[in-house]
């Protein structure tokens, strides 16, 4: 299954003012039916608060984000996934392949593969394998977008910079969109620190992600939190004997 990448990508530099919008988190304890999980992702994603309505264009470019782009050759994370009452755990392998594609492979502790994804050098997404329980378009699209946000695998030089006006904020937003999907990187005003990443639409936030303890552009931990329903991914770097 191959999702081609949109060519209509814009890169913007935003400033957020009065964007202290509380996320309306749902605490769902529901059965594990596949259709319900897919349904929740689609429906609840559309219920997100309007977090970005006060963003305004300002001057600047995205070059300073380069130092935050994650550089993986081979890295292992202890991974836990909590989704609508279900708990999965295992190991996430992120590996740069000889053709410069990136593979993401998630197995449980016994080695059973949950999924095996690829982002090509150009950013195209491919599913090599996924377990039946997760084999839904909405689930795969969500995971694709989540990991696309985290990996920051869009070449900055390829993207067109836009300038936006800064107003009353201690945070700068950098964003690009693919169709209606917007990816946000939020930094300090001097771009000295990446505060968090967010994903959503031009107005609504559906996810926020945090990276911490960056060492050589590889974070020690990553946390992905979906705003509108219980779907959290937590990654903690581990070191095997290789």
């Amino acid at each position: 299954m191959l999702y081609s990448r949109s060519n209509n990508i814009a890169f913007c530099h935003f400033n957020l003012s009065k964007a202290n919008v509380k996320a309306s988190s749902f605490n769902l304890k529901l059965p594990t039916a596949n259709w319900l999980f897919a349904f929740l992702i689609v429906v609840l994603s559309s219920c997100a608060p309007k977090a970005y309505k006060n963003l305004q264009q300002t001057d600047g470019n995205a070059d300073c984000l380069q130092k935050f782009q994650l550089k993986y050759e081979r890295v292992l994370y202890r991974a836990t996934v909590d989704v609508v009452g279900n708990h999965l755990s295992g190991v996430l392998l992120i590996k740069q392949m000889p053709d410069s594609s990136t593979r993401l492979l998630f197995t449980n502790e016994a080695g059973f593969k949950f999924f095996d994804f690829e982002f090509s050098k150009e950013g195209a997404f491919k599913v090599y394998s996924i377990i039946d329980k997760m084999d839904k378009e909405s689930v795969k699209k969500t995971l694709q977008r989540d990991f696309q946000l985290i990996l920051m695998n869009k070449p900055l030089g390829f993207l067109k910079p836009y300038k936006f006006k800064i107003q009353n904020a201690n945070e700068h937003y950098f964003a690009y969109n693919e169709g209606e999907d917007f990816y946000y990187y939020i930094t300090k005003p001097d771009c000295s620190q990446l505060l968090r990443m967010e994903r959503g639409s031009s107005t609504k936030k559906v996810l926020e992600a945090f990276v911490s303890d960056m060492k050589n552009q590889v974070p020690d931990s990553i946390r992905i939190h979906h705003i509108n329903f219980n779907f959290d991914i937590s990654l903690k770097r581990i070191y095997d004997s290789e």
Binding site: R74, V91, L93, K95, E109, G111, I238, Y239, D240, S241
Partner: peptide, 29 residues
């Protein structure tokens, strides 16, 4: 992927059907 993932731990079995599998490296499980 030309890749090996290695983990280590302790295994215990007691008749008839008690098993303890304890991963100790590179994570606790």
């Amino acid at each position: 992927l030309s890749e090996k993932l290695t983990s280590k731990g302790k295994f215990y079995f007691k008749k008839d059907n008690l098993v303890r599998m304890e991963y100790t490296s590179p994570y606790q499980y």
